[in-house]
C-alpha cells in the first residue's frame, strides 16, 4: 500500500495552489506541497527540502537528522558484532 518516493522540492510553480516541482533522480513532476509547509513558512521556504511523494502530493518532510540517527545505529550494530566476533576469535562475515 501507499508507494511513497523521496524527492527534493525544486521550485514553486503556483504559490496560491501550493504547487511545486519535485525532483526524483532528474524526473520532475508537479506536486501539491500543502502538507509540508510548516506554520509560519511560505511555499518558497520548502524549496530544497526532501519530502515523501505519494500520488502527486508531498506528504511529509524527511528529517535528515533522524535518518542519520537510524543509519548510525545500524552501522554501530555491525561494528559491535564485528568486535564481539573478534573477541570470540572468529572472523565476522560481513
Amino acid at each position: 500500500m501507499c508507494l511513497g518516493i523521496p524527492g527534493q522540492i525544486a521550485e514553486v510553480t503556483n504559490t496560491e495552489a501550493k504547487l511545486a516541482l519535485v525532483d526524483v533522480l532528474g524526473v520532475r513532476r508537479e506536486v501539491n506541497i500543502a502538507c509540508v509547509i510548516r506554520d509560519g513558512e511560505t511555499a518558497e521556504d520548502v524549496v530544497g527540502a526532501w519530502v515523501l511523494v505519494h500520488v502527486g502530493f508531498a506528504m511529509s518532510r524527511i528529517d535528515e537528522k533522524e535518518a542519520q540517527i537510524t543509519l548510525d545505529l545500524l552501522h554501530a550494530l555491525g561494528e559491535a558484532q564485528a568486535e564481539a566476533a573478534a573477541l570470540r576469535g572468529v572472523e565476522a562475515t560481513t
Binding site: W50, G78, T94
Partner: peptide, 20 residues
C-alpha cells in the same frame, strides 16, 4: 538514490539478521 539506497545496504542487513 538518497534515503533509499542507504537503507538497502546488504552488510547492515546481515548484522540485523544476526540479531533477529
Amino acid at each position: 538514490m538518497k534515503f533509499v539506497d542507504e537503507f538497502r545496504d546488504p552488510s547492515t542487513a546481515k548484522a540485523l539478521l544476526r540479531e533477529v
